[in-house]
Amino acid sequence: MAFNDTASDWPTFSFIGMPGLETAHIWISIPFCLLYLGALAGNALLLILVRAEQNLHEPQFYFLAMLALTDLGLSLTTMPSVMAIFWFDVRHISLDAYLTQMFFIHTLSSVESGVLVAMAFDRLVAICAPLNYTRILTHYTVACLSGAALIRGATLLAPLPFFLRNFPFCGPNILSHSYCYYPDMLNLACGDVTFSSVYGLVFVLCTFAVDVVFILASYIKILGSIMKLGAQDRNWRSLQTCARHLCTVFVFYLPLISLSVLHRYTQDTSPIQYTTMSNAYLLMTPLLNPLVYSLKSRQIQAALRKQFWVQRVIAGE
């Protein structure tokens, strides 16, 4: 289907769902629905706790709230298209709807990566300069770091929808995922896509690659600072405060890197593998982040217990 200037001739795209498992979509939708509900409930609960508990009004928990807010956005952005496929067999999406969902997915992914960098900086200051922690990480600093992550993602992603609107699409326009993914659409475009492909690579390098370097540099500095201390002065327990953040980093970047490798360097990958990996990328991160922080943070656990007893007292009254 070629791209013309009139809105009626704009192309539509088709999601593939779970290839080969179409007859089982209604059953597959049950675990997907439960996972989405778990992700929404977990991140919403973290936001409520950080807002309600005075003990959580600290920079590391403000960043956690930003992370939870980003994960909520990712879940709410992808859930309509994914569940529409499983529940109603709605597979078609217009060009404008595709570009809108694509913009939010990639922007929020970039924001989450930036927040992970801010959390690494928080751990760096807390361990390497604890006496200056409150002076460096003020409310203003937290707001600036969070705002910078948002502005960076939105600014770098803004040109991509305009690039894609200028391409003709002459094939069957069948997508490899259950949501809108920039490399997926670029593979369907006709004509010379060199510039758009290079810009996409630049975006990845300026966001995810740079963020990984900053995170690695932060932990190298943290480890180096601890190793410089005498054996009797080393407090290895201080590294345990980084465990939650490292778990979140691995949960976010491993599926992202795996999905990028599948798109760029494999030609014979089965569609079901693409779909499974893509769903793991945007579903497991929002689901696991609240669990990681709830299970490993004593302050979060204390806040949960407090809210539980408060609700029981209110219910008893």
Rank of each mutant, 00 (worst) to 15 (best):
L69N: 09
Q60V: 01
L35N: 03
L46V: 14
D71N: 15
T100S: 05
H25N: 13
M79N: 01
L46W: 01
L45Q: 00
F88G: 09
E22D: 12
A24N: 07
L99S: 09
H25Y: 13
P31K: 04
Y36V: 07
L34D: 10
V90S: 15
A52C: 03
S75Q: 00
C33Y: 15
A84C: 08
G20Y: 08
I93A: 11
P80W: 07
T77P: 07
P31W: 06
I30F: 11
I93T: 12
L95Y: 02
D96N: 07
S29T: 04
L45N: 10
I85D: 07
L95D: 00
L76V: 10
Y36N: 03
S29W: 01
S94M: 05
G73Q: 11
W87S: 10
L34I: 13
L49A: 04
L99A: 03
E53Y: 09
L64H: 03
S94E: 12
T23Y: 13
P80Q: 03
L47F: 07
Y98M: 10
F61I: 01
L21W: 09
S29N: 06
I28F: 13
L67N: 08
L69A: 13
L49V: 02
A97K: 14
S29F: 01
F86V: 02
I85P: 04
S29R: 05
Q60K: 15
F86P: 00
A52G: 00
A39M: 12
E22I: 05
H25A: 08
I26D: 10
R51L: 08
A24H: 12
L72P: 09
L69R: 07
L40R: 04
L49S: 04
L45V: 14
E53V: 05
F63D: 01
G20D: 01
S94C: 02
G42N: 02
L95I: 01
I28L: 12
L95C: 01
L74C: 05
G73Y: 05
A44M: 06
P31M: 01
A84D: 14
I85W: 08
L49H: 00
W87R: 11
F88S: 10
W27G: 02
L34E: 14
Q60G: 00
R51D: 11
L37T: 12
G73I: 03
D71C: 15
A39S: 09
V82F: 07
S81M: 12
